[in-house]
Amino acid sequence: MIKLASTLACAILLTTAVTPPVLATERPTDPLDSPRWSDMEKGMLSGAPYVFDTRVRVDAPGTAENPLNVPITIDATALADVKEILVFADFNPILEILRFYPDAAPAYIGFRAKLQQSTPVRAAVRTGDGVWHVGGTLVNTVGGGCTAPSMGSTSSEWQKRLNEVTTRTWNEGPMSGRLRMRIIHPMDTGLIAGIPPFHLESVVLSDEAGHPLARLEVSQPVSENPVFTLSRGSTTGALQAHGRDNNGNTFNVRIPQ
């Protein structure tokens, strides 16, 4: 009993900055007040404990002019021991946008996504204790992002350039440690009749010795020709990137420092 009490006290101490994780009887209120939240909680977080946490920063335009290319930046570097970042949109026909595992990298990622209509965009960040820390922002858009054909699927140019990778790293100045990577891929959602889903599925970044730096599981709502902004943290030297799409096409590139 004494032990339990001290464990509890410890838990309370650790979480004073945020709302404590949900217990069966009390549920935190969605700060974005989305009618879909209870579905998200069950479907995306599988009933695991979670808190809404302002330390998870989700940056996206309040009004996105182009629903095919909505910039989203997730910064969870204020949290310690981040295992996984799950990004999803409550009102997208395909909810999950991507999962990011920052194995040895800072918990920071930027990319662009397709949104079908105005929706909360969320990042659920799982820390080592198994709790999801949820941040989010509302994006208004005229919609249609998921049911518009990609430029790629309507032209033949991408076939020659599929999985072509361009990158750049910044090693000094305010952006020191930053890595940007663009991959040519149509990212077809499969929501348009006659165009099957065809999308990048995974990207693994590792250091020169092959130790994983970060892993990405990419879903269809990520924009065509994805551009990822990542931070390499303190990892120096060249990096390697290995990618694969749902049709088994792969790429393997070396990114010089």
């Binding site: 335009p61 361009t166 990577m181 070396r254």
Partner: peptide, 21 residues
């Protein structure tokens, strides 16, 4: 300006990156 970033930044960005394969 914000709309123009949406229209034109992807091309500027592509320009700033280097080929790896």
């Amino acid at each position: 300006y914000r709309r123009s970033v949406g229209h034109l930044f992807p091309a500027a960005e592509t320009h700033s990156l280097q080929h790896n394969n």
